[in-house]
Amino acid sequence: MNDYRANRVAGHSYFFTVRLSGRDSTLLTDHIAAFGEAIRQARSRKPFHVDAWVALPDHAHAIWTLPPGDHDCATRWRAVKIAFSKSLGKSLGKSRAGAAPDTIWEPHYRQHPVGSDEYAGLVDYIHHNPLRHGLCGAPQEWPWSSLHRFIAAGMVAGSNSA
Rank of each mutant, 00 (worst) to 15 (best):
D3E: 12
R5M: 05
A6S: 09
R8W: 02
V9Q: 12
H12E: 12
S13K: 08
S13C: 14
S13P: 10
Y14P: 06
F16Y: 13
F16M: 06
T17W: 01
R19L: 11
L20W: 04
R23I: 13
D24R: 11
S25K: 07
S25M: 06
T26R: 15
L27R: 11
L27Q: 05
T29P: 06
T29M: 00
H31M: 09
A34V: 08
A34N: 08
G36T: 10
E37Q: 12
E37K: 05
A38Y: 11
A38C: 10
Q41R: 14
A42C: 00
A42N: 01
S44H: 09
R45T: 02
F48N: 00
H49N: 12
V50L: 10
V50M: 07
A52M: 06
V54T: 03
L56E: 03
L56V: 02
P57R: 07
P57F: 07
H59E: 04
H59T: 04
A60R: 10
T65V: 03
L66I: 04
L66A: 00
P67T: 02
P67D: 02
G69D: 11
D70T: 04
H71P: 13
H71A: 15
D72C: 03
D72Q: 05
C73L: 15
C73H: 13
A74N: 13
A74M: 12
T75Q: 14
R76S: 04
R76G: 01
W77R: 04
W77T: 02
W77K: 01
R78G: 03
I82W: 00
I82V: 08
K86E: 15
S87P: 03
L88M: 08
K90C: 13
L92Y: 01
L92H: 09
G93E: 05
G93T: 06
S95F: 09
S95T: 12
R96N: 13
A97F: 15
G98E: 06
G98V: 03
A99M: 13
P101R: 09
P101E: 08
D102C: 14
T103C: 11
I104Q: 00
I104T: 13
E106V: 11
P107A: 14
H108M: 11
H108D: 13
Q111A: 14
Y119W: 11
Y119F: 10
A120I: 02
G121I: 04
L122V: 07
V123R: 12
D124K: 13
N129R: 00
P130E: 00
P130H: 02
P130K: 02
L131F: 02
H133S: 08
G134Q: 09
L135R: 08
G137K: 15
A138W: 07
A138Y: 09
Q140M: 12
Q140G: 08
W142A: 07
W144N: 07
S145V: 06
S146W: 07
S146Q: 00
L147F: 08
L147T: 08
L147N: 04
H148D: 03
I151N: 00
I151W: 01
A153T: 04
M155Q: 15
S159V: 12
S159Y: 10
